[in-house]
Design a protein around this nucleic acid. Structure first.
Lengths: 203, 203
DNA sequence: GTTTTTGCACTGACCAGTCAGTGCAAAAAG
DNA sequence: CTTTTTGCACTGACTGGTCAGTGCAAAAAC
């Protein structure tokens, strides 16, 4: 991919970074192209030289970000499998990978959550595709685990996957927004406990 | 309270209903006051007769909605306690109450999630207050459970509460958006299993 | 010499908020 | 009774401003 090194790619990257924080803070419609250009330190014309429109910039940003996330989740699952960990270990590693990602790209996460369940929007389609990619990684591990007899076969794979994703997402955003002094390990520990059912009494 | 029956209150209610779906679909900034007025079957001036500004309308809408939610969660917890259920039962009842609420007011939930972690916005303060009220109900049950020795004392009350809320929120929104054919009991069942740690193997 | 970026003036659609005025029912004045 | 006044709820045309997107010539980078 030559595009990842050229001058143009560097400009796009600057625009992504400027757009992601502004849109996370204010929302898509409330963020102006002039603001994005200014924060990226670029002329407005450059925005339109690189992207067909404001929406297209946003869609490409979404794809870009979710690409990073799924790669990181997959990596965590594979890494665990390679080093002989169980499926629970794999889920646990994915939870951590999720937390690390959100910690690193909080603005992207905010914006993603804010847009995910919106209907009637131009990028609805993009979001669906991209969501499916991410949730599919979790579903994959759950399904394998059920097949291998490691997880209860009573579980509903897709609902459980959604619930797990939600658990991590909301806990992480809450952590960053309201208790930023906590460590990543604290948060990871709390979620691990919950995942393993050690909240409701048994040891 | 006379205000809950008069002509004016009826108009406000119509405006809330119009605003909630439009803002859930499009976001706050992308929704125009003209649209809200039109959907409510009212002139634009009426919106400004009843609310000082678009933001104020939105803030009052938030307070209104979260009030309903917390009442419903508290009710579920108390009902369980009264009929001699355990804390796990109370959590489970609250999960169900949450699902029922989201099923009934999906638009409100979408809009709440979309705005909750935004910074730099006029209603930031309102959201904080209102969030605290809702999460506090869950935290209360967790704290009581730990004190009573029913939950592990290793748990981190506030992080666990956030994670539980997230689990319900995301699972429910996913249910409504992507698998609406599932029943409430299906979703509740999946979340119960997860809460009780019966996903990762033990019976 | 080709690609990319800049700077800047311009347009036209769109939109939050305003304001003078309407309709109406109940109270006050005659 | 009947006329006039008052206050409330609502109306919709209008205004001042904002913003996505355009056009283009000149400079900079490669």
């Amino acid at each position: 991919m030559k595009s990842s090194t050229g001058r143009r790619a560097a400009t796009k990257q600057k625009l992504y970074e400027a757009a992601v924080t502004l849109i996370a803070e204010q929302g898509f419609s409330a963020t102006t192209v002039d603001e994005i250009a200014e924060r990226a330190g670029v002329a407005k014309g450059t925005v339109y030289y690189n992207f067909a429109s404001k929406s297209v910039l946003f869609e490409e940003l979404l794809r870009h970000g979710v690409g990073l996330l799924t790669a990181s989740l997959r990596e965590a699952a594979e890494q665990t499998a390679r080093s002989g960990g169980s499926r629970v270990d794999a889920l646990d590693a994915m939870i951590r990978a999720g937390l690390v990602f959100i910690h690193r790209y909080p603005a992207f996460t905010q914006l993603y959550v804010a847009e995910l369940w919106r209907t009637n929007r131009a990028w609805q389609e993009t979001l669906m595709v991209v969501r499916q990619e991410a949730v599919a990684v979790v579903e994959g591990v759950l399904r394998d685990g059920v097949e291998a007899g490691e997880f209860s076969d009573e579980i509903d794979v897709s609902l459980t996957a959604a619930a797990l994703v939600g658990m991590v997402l909301v806990a992480a955003l809450d952590w960053l927004a309201f208790q930023p002094e906590r460590s990543l390990d604290d948060v990871h520990g709390a979620l691990s406990l919950l995942l393993q059912g050690r909240v409701t009494g048994r040891r």
